[in-house]
Design a protein around this nucleic acid. Sequence first.
RNA 1: GGGCGAUUAGCUCAGUUGGUAGAGCAUCGCAUUUACACUGCGAGGGUCACAGGUUCGAGUCCUGUAUCGCCCACCA
Length: 739
Amino acid sequence: MPEKFLKPYDPAGTETRIYEAWEKSGLFNPDECVRQGVTAPDAAAYSVVLPPPNVTGSLHVGHAYEDSLQDAIVRFERMRGKRVVWIPGTDSAAIATQARVEKNIQKEEGKSRHDMGREELVRRVMDFARASESTILNQIRRMGASLDWSRYAFTLDEARNAAVMEAFKRMYEAGLIYRGHRIVNWDPKGQTTISDDEIIYEEEKATFYYLKYGPFTIGTARPETKFGDKYVVMHPDDPRYADWKDGQTFEAEWINGPITGTVVKDSSIDMEFGTGVMTITPWHSSADFDIAERHDLDKEQIIDEYGKLLPIAGEYAGMKIAEARPKIVEKLREKALVVKEEPYTHNIATAERTGGIIEPQIKLQWFVDVDKPFVMQHSEIPGIESGSTATLKALMRAAVESGAVHMPQEGFKNAYFHWIDNLRDWCISRQIWFGHRIPVWYGGEQVHIGTEAPSDEGWTQDPDVLDTWFSSALWTFSTLGWPEETSDLATYHPTAFISPGYEILNLWVSRMILMSGFLLGQVPFKTVLIHGVVRDKQGRKFSKSLNNGVDPIDMAERYGADALRMGLLAGTAIGGDVSFDESKVKGYKHFANKLWNIARFILENTEKVRAGSERDSQFSARELEHLNTLEALTNDVTADIEAFRVYMAAEKLYHYAWHELADKILEESKPILAGADEDARRSRAALLLLLLRRTITLLHPFMPFITEEIWSSFAPLMRGASRSDYDNFLMVARWPLLR
RNA sequence: GGGCGAUUAGCUCAGUUGGUAGAGCAUCGCAUUUACACUGCGAGGGUCACAGGUUCGAGUCCUGUAUCGCCCACCA
């Protein structure tokens, strides 16, 4: 009996030691598994990529949950003899990371990015990213994640950059990437464009003004944008304005003097809202922009990139919006142009990363065209033939509709289709400095695509970088060596499943399907297993501002990573939100200790009694019953994990180990083991060794550390009871085959 | 405005195809010097949000209502 078994189980000390041993063995790497004869050379491949966490600090228990879930499935498949690779990585998260560092620098040194310059800022952001990366990787290791570190990738490393450049080039050459003037979400605070998905709407109480505009009364919440308004729009079917014809002009006294207005009839106008008439500001509103495009109207900029009014505002030029608005309203009142004012609550768009209030602007940006037809050279996606014409939207739809990408959760599937149906062109340029620089060079009127400038003089590179999701979208294959035709790519793509939170279904999952479909003609993964958000006991998200964060390392140190994993996984249906409950983790710490003592009891008693071998033991009827129960459990647990019901498998195992094996079988065994009947003693000892071995084998995907520790401590005894593979880690032992 | 999900024990949550309600923590009682007090045995506690319907039988399926949450769109 090893001496450590005489004391309670010590998770903190055990876990780090075991992880080091695993890592040193090289067995997280499937190539090494084959080389060491652990995995058959022709075993089926099973690959998973870790959703790369942002290098913006450290991980929280939400990541711990995601990692535990994937690790349980990955370990299960590895034990089933598959050639398993789980690829780790981190995401540069362009805007998020740069914003974080800029904020720190501003606070500590009082400098802006412009004081510092591009090169210096990028260096500082990269330093921060490297520090975060190191913290994060330690956290992931501490959770026991069996990732193949030899394949580690960072979205901004050399190989991934090569993949991004190649992807950009191929899409550009297919005509799917274009540069154009479009209305974009401009963040005056971050001085960059952001995508629709990076906007957060916040409720604002404002005033809604009814203004006299020539013969009409218009409604607006933003009088400060109205200087250039010379079009008045109404619904073509609105009887109140039936006398007015499209294109008809009229004179009106306006903020800074008389102007000529033009009537525009457009059916996008809501007759019920306000007076049913509005003026439009195409430069600063996407809805207005669309109307202007439809009727080929003039567009004029009113507000600059810093949120200040331009000379068109006359006496208000140079003022910030907030400052100008009351003054303008005052003037309108003086000119008796304000008909009515009423309180009004609406949502204003703010930038997720910087909190800046979005001011739509027309800008020259790069876009991915999601509706343009192109020829699919090669396609393995059902519903899209090789050589046929498709669009990116059609590709995204077909991948899921055909079931090639399986989304078992119907609700998320509907959300995905809904998103595709409403999708507009994807703006991929960002006016920041940290990230993949757009590989486009301008020489006068000429454009060159490539990472290097052409050899002759006079070329300048586009200053923008790509949306961070552009590089993340390549993740399932950029990590496998694409665009090189590596054996990894041939062996491991498409991957088996992806496990993201639902908040990035659109941002990430759909764009992976887009990129993989276009560039490889494949789906990126066969199953999407969407999980919920981990919340605190009050149901709140974990956030820095609430200061309710829980550090997974802290939990692991206090209760053990095994306990934390079980606390997060067991009894938590996948897809729903997870409420983090520390007392649950504590409960599973007790369970770990229980397992420890089950092992101790069995080993202690089988040391004294020479156990019969499994083969020649004459098990009693009662013992055969126990074996059957265990067999049924094995079937159940296997089926559960195969169907991704990880939470159920975990609960069943917990219940079996504690309330069946310990409470019933061990108690029942005590008199037998102390009895006079030697045959009975021997067969019982053999039974208990078998039950213990099977139980810790089944539990290994969930509680890898303690099961490995029991396994290795008692390898000689275990081996005495049965055949084969105790020389190696439990991690690579065989999952019991079904009968 | 559109969509999705939730509502089960004091708290946090499970309950796979419809077959007499479960776990962790908390509460109460009893037991216990050797596997384990990070214990054992046992108890209390739920008209499964509400109202209808289908069925021999509904926490589970259908319809409606209420409350909460999330996602999408965004109306000047």
